[in-house]
Amino acid sequence: MAEIKYTEDHEYAHLDGDVATIGITKHAQQQLGDVVYVELPEVGKSFARGDEAAVVESVKAAAEVYAPVSGEVTQANEELEGNPGLVNEDPEGGAWFFKLKLSDKSELDGMMDADAYAKFVAEQG
């Protein structure tokens, strides 16, 4: 069964087997506003948990997207390069950023589930 986990930096990791699909949450895109540019990692690149993996920019600001778990990039969503606005329209669906082949699945245990993340966002106001 698919499992979705969240970070305090508002990334999500959608696990399918040993590959996690990484993106930013609906809340994150709302905070950011109109996305005009996305910079994605190259396929084959390895990240440790917490590494800067991608960049998402709105008219006003640039924000880093961190690797929520360690692993190797197997795919990047090239559609975002031509259509960065998709991040606002479908952040937790079609606008995923990249896929990681996990090196340590247990890292997901330290992340929030959907309920915990919803509570975290509500508390942040």
Binding site: G33, D34, V36, V59, K60
Partner: peptide, 12 residues
């Protein structure tokens, strides 16, 4: 107000 519901892009 940094932006309204319309958003920076459409406001511009």
């Amino acid at each position: 107000p940094v932006q309204y519901p319309l958003g920076v892009l459409k406001e511009h």
